[in-house]
Design a protein around this nucleic acid. Structure first.
Length: 285
DNA sequence: AAGGCCTTCAACCGCATAATC
DNA sequence: TGATTATGCGGTTGAAGGCCT
């Protein structure tokens, strides 16, 4: 047998909450704390379903909620986060203290979406609307496009998984896997059946520059995974099993002056401080 | 003043996943 | 281990208020 039902749906109120109901819920949570939404309505003397109580508390009654209009900074952050996370409102809300997922979702649908459309940006793809209809092959944004579009082409760059099979074996044999980087919209439209692994990465031009500089200094081809370049896994825990990553990491620790990859560390690719955005903790599904 | 349309946002619904028995 | 429920999430709805004609 499973759990018992959360509430008797026949004897619960629906619709807008009254002041009395709010007061009951607030005073109950103040004295007993959050949690156990199943038993809360009965204990608090409310004729509401636990789910409804939870929603009312989280979206409206919680004391740490920020009231009032969204600031320009919040606006900007929402757009940037949405371009990375899509409609993951709860994830976006974790980056905006005092704002709820429901609030952000409503704000997006009523304000931001329209604002982007007015500016000629598709709120789904975050690309210029005319471009969405006829995607470019070039990865270089036009000069006339604003910083948002540049940021987006930047953040949507992909690394397609190597198609040459076992990474370790190929490295040991001195073979270099060919990596192709293409823009999101192009991949999406041309290869709908591909199982793509989305990663946040710096712009291709930056990666190309990094690659060229490395080649110049070390006189050989070197590829490093994004996690290694950002030091997300401090080298040792890197799961890419790339010999080059390990070699360069050991080099950098012993001789910091020759560590080219340091130029990437702390790269503020969202225009935000890393203290504000901790991408290691973001779940990218 | 009244009716229609639009906008906003709290609340609900359905689904996926986690938790429990 | 499978059945069942709780919880959390995103999409959608609908009441309320504002604006326009």
């Amino acid at each position: 047998m499973g759990r018992s039902p959360c509430c008797e749906k026949d004897h619960t109120n629906k619709g807008a909450w009254t002041k009395e109901e709010d007061d009951k819920l607030v005073s109950y949570i103040k004295s007993h704390g959050e949690g156990c939404w199943r038993s809360l309505p009965r204990s608090a003397g409310l004729l509401r379903c636990g789910k409804s109580c939870r929603l009312r508390w989280i979206n409206y009654l919680r004391p740490d909620l920020k009231r009032g209009n969204f600031t320009l900074e919040e606006d900007d952050l929402i757009i940037k986060l949405h371009s990375l996370l899509g409609n993951k409102w709860s994830l976006i809300a974790t980056r905006l203290p005092g704002r709820t997922d429901n609030e952000i979702k409503n704000y997006w649908n009523t304000h931001v979406k329209r604002k982007l459309l007015r500016g000629g940006i598709d709120p789904i793809t975050h690309r210029p609307i005319n471009e969405t209809k006829a995607p470019r092959v070039s990865s270089e944004p036009r000069d006339t496009e604003d910083s948002l579009v540049k940021f987006l082409s930047f953040s949507r760059q992909l690394e397609i998984k190597e198609s040459c099979g076992d990474n370790k074996r190929n490295n040991q044999e001195g073979l270099i896997c060919k990596k192709e980087r293409v823009e999101y919209s192009v991949v999406e439209e041309r290869c709908l059946d591909l199982n793509l692994e989305l990663r946040i990465s710096p712009p291709w031009q930056d990666q190309q520059q990094h690659h060229d500089e490395t080649k110049l200094r070390f006189g050989r081809e070197k590829f490093r995974c994004t996690a290694c370049r950002f030091r997300l896994g401090n080298g040792k825990e890197c799961s890419c099993h790339n010999v080059n990553c390990q070699v360069e990491d050991s080099t950098s620790s012993s001789n910091s002056s020759s560590d080219i990859s340091c130029s990437v560390v702390g790269y503020d690719f969202l225009g935000l401080n890393t203290s504000v955005l901790d991408f290691c903790s973001l779940e990218m599904n």
